[in-house]
Amino acid sequence: MNWQAFVLTLELALATSIVLIVIALPLGYWLAFSKWRWKFLAEAVFALPLVLPPTVLGFYVLVALGPRSPVGRWYESIFGGRLVFTFEGLVAASVLYSLPFAVQPIVAAFGSVDRKFIEASWLLGVSDWRTFWRVIVPLSWAGIVTGVVLSFAHTLGEFGVVLMVGGGIPGVTQTVSIDIYDKVQSLDFSGAAVTSAVLLITSFVILSIVYGLNRKVWFFAADRRH
């Protein structure tokens, strides 16, 4: 068992989820409530990572983050280092890759908040911003947790993007899925089996949490049945 890769993967998934929650809450709010007529185009763009082959996404991210791209140069001028083949580069790629997994449950949850609660809040003199935190977020918490957990789980298992952008450097960018691939390549089937089992069990536990959350057995969800 390659614990270094395992810990690295967890760190990557955690960092990705944290960045994603910061991005997905405002983006989800906009996608759920904006009346912009071209919004469907934005929805399609943000859903792209669901259907694109990870290598395609990885290729574009590699080019976009590379030292010759504006993003790469900008990053280098500020932080003095490169994004590709680093942990930070992996986080950036993973954020793009897992974005729909965080955004879509949040959009669905925001969209299912009954509009009368939002209007009731306005009519009690409470601003949009505070209404968001005091009404929309609490009534969407199962969707928000689902988004965070799904993006975490999805990042745990990513392979193509990580390989393209990270290159599989042990201790820096070699995640569990790449470790498994490397083990199989070197015919270490028992090692690959153990690591695969750990990933399988981890994913199962995480998905169980997601489905458990959405079973609506908690007091709060019970309220909403009325």
Partner: peptide
């Protein structure tokens, strides 16, 4: 709506389901 000093009662009351009665009143 925030700037209009009206008390509005919704048809099905629209009490915030995640807040207790005192929190609803004090909202």
């Amino acid at each position: 709506p925030q700037k209009r000093p009206v008390g509005f009662l919704f048809q099905d009351y629209a009490l915030f389901p995640h807040l207790r009665v005192n929190e609803n009143i004090g909202y």
